Measured scan of single mutants.
Amino acid sequence: GFPHNFQETTYLKPTFCDNCAGFLWGVIKQGYRCKDCGMNCHKQCKDLVVFECKK
């Protein structure tokens, strides 16, 4: 597997964290999205993600 390539992201529609399944709250920059596989997560979850990037 590969490490994720997370970038701070502004979501335009309701989005949930792929790590904890919690809602990504806020208006802008609600969470992080992996540029390579599209995984979404909270800032506090991005260092805890157990799934490797599937590129």
Rank of each mutant, 00 (worst) to 15 (best):
G26R: 02
Q30N: 03
Y32D: 07
N5P: 04
H42M: 01
F6E: 03
E52N: 08
N40E: 10
G1S: 15
K35E: 14
T9K: 03
V49G: 09
P3Y: 15
Q30P: 02
T10E: 00
C53H: 13
C53G: 11
P3N: 15
K35I: 13
F6I: 06
R33N: 15
N5A: 09
D47C: 15
P3H: 15
F51A: 11
C41V: 14
T9C: 12
L24N: 05
L12I: 02
K46G: 13
A21D: 09
I28M: 14
C34S: 00
K35F: 07
K46F: 07
C17A: 00
K55R: 04
K35T: 12
F23G: 05
F51I: 10
C41A: 13
C53T: 06
Q7C: 04
N19V: 12
N5M: 13
N40S: 12
L12D: 04
E8N: 08
K43D: 13
K54G: 05
T9I: 07
E8D: 03
Q44T: 07
I28G: 07
Q44I: 05
C41S: 11
F16G: 05
Q30A: 02
W25C: 03
G38T: 06
H4P: 00
T9Q: 11
Q7A: 12
P14V: 04
F16L: 03
V50S: 12
F51S: 13
F51T: 04
F16E: 04
Q44K: 14
T15P: 03
N5W: 09
W25D: 09
K29T: 05
F6P: 03
Q30V: 02
C34L: 00
N19D: 10
F2H: 12
Y11V: 06
C53N: 15
H4D: 02
Y11M: 11
K29Q: 10
L48F: 13
Y11Q: 03
N19A: 14
T9P: 01
T15E: 04
K54Q: 09
T15Q: 04
K54F: 07
I28A: 06
C53P: 09
K29N: 13
V49C: 07
N40C: 09
F2L: 04
L48N: 05
K46R: 13
Y11R: 07
K43C: 11
K54C: 08
V50E: 14
G31I: 02
G38H: 10
D36H: 08
K46I: 14
H4C: 07
N5L: 12
I28E: 05
T10R: 03
F16C: 14
H4S: 00
L24I: 12
F16D: 04
Q44E: 15
W25S: 06
F23Q: 07
P3F: 15
T15R: 05
G38I: 03
M39Q: 12
Q7G: 09
E8Q: 14
F51V: 12
K29C: 08
K46A: 10
A21E: 12
P3V: 14
N40D: 12
L24W: 02
Q44Y: 15
V27M: 06
K13A: 07
G22C: 15
K55L: 01
E52H: 11
T9G: 06
V49R: 14
H4R: 00
D36E: 12
L48T: 12
K43N: 04
M39Y: 10
L48E: 11
F6S: 06
C45F: 03
R33S: 12
E8V: 14
T15S: 08
G38F: 11
D18Y: 05
H4G: 01
W25N: 04
K55D: 03
K43L: 11
Y32A: 08
V27I: 09
C53D: 11
W25P: 11
L48D: 15
K55Y: 04
N5H: 13
C34W: 01
T15G: 02
K43W: 03
R33T: 13
E8C: 10
R33A: 08
C45I: 03
F2Q: 06
I28T: 09
C45G: 04
C53F: 05
A21R: 14
C45K: 02
C34D: 06
K43I: 15
C34K: 01
L48Y: 13
K46C: 15
H4Y: 01
A21I: 14
C45H: 03
L12H: 07
G31K: 01
C45P: 00
G26V: 01
V50R: 09
C17M: 02
V27W: 07
A21H: 10
M39P: 00
V49K: 07
C37K: 00
T9D: 09
Y32I: 08
C34Q: 00
T10K: 03
C20V: 00
C53E: 07
C20G: 00
Q7T: 06
C20A: 00
V27G: 07
K54W: 04
D36N: 13
Y11F: 15
C17K: 00
F2Y: 12
G26F: 02
E52W: 06
K46Y: 11
C17V: 01
K29H: 10
V50W: 09
L24C: 09
I28F: 13
L48K: 13
A21K: 13
G26A: 07
F16A: 10
Y11D: 01
L24T: 06
W25R: 07
Y32S: 12
N40W: 02
A21V: 11
C37L: 00
K13W: 09
C20H: 02
Y11L: 12
R33Y: 04
F23W: 13
V49Q: 11
F6N: 05
G1Q: 08
K55W: 04
D36P: 07
L12S: 09
F51G: 14
C45Q: 00
F2D: 10
G1R: 07
L48C: 14
P14I: 02
V49W: 14
G1D: 15
P14Y: 04
C45N: 02
N40H: 09
W25T: 15
G22M: 15
G38R: 13
G31L: 02
V50P: 08
N19C: 11
L24Q: 04
P3S: 15
H4N: 02
T10S: 10
K35W: 07
F2C: 07
C37F: 00
K13C: 08
T15M: 08
T9L: 08
A21N: 14
L48S: 14
E52D: 15
D18K: 13
C17D: 00
K46W: 12
G1N: 15
P14H: 02
F16M: 06
C53Q: 14
Q30K: 02
L48M: 14
C37S: 02
D36W: 12
L12R: 08
V50I: 03
T9Y: 13
D47W: 09
L24E: 04
G31Y: 11
C20P: 00
F23R: 06
V27Y: 13
N5K: 08
K46M: 15
V49P: 08
K43P: 08
F6Y: 10
Q7E: 11
F51L: 11
M39A: 09
C45A: 03
M39C: 03
H42G: 06
F6W: 02
L48G: 14
G38W: 09
F23L: 15
Q7P: 00
G26W: 06
K29R: 10
N5E: 10
R33L: 10
F6K: 02
K54Y: 06
T15L: 06
E52Y: 13
L12P: 08
K55V: 06
A21P: 09
G1V: 13
R33Q: 06
K54R: 12
H42C: 04
Q30E: 02
K29D: 02
D18S: 14
E52C: 09
Y32G: 07
K54M: 13
A21G: 10
V50H: 07
Q7Y: 08
F16R: 07
G22H: 10
C45V: 02
F16Q: 06
H42D: 11
Q7D: 07
R33P: 00
L24S: 05
L12F: 11
T10Y: 05
P3T: 14
N19E: 15
G38L: 11
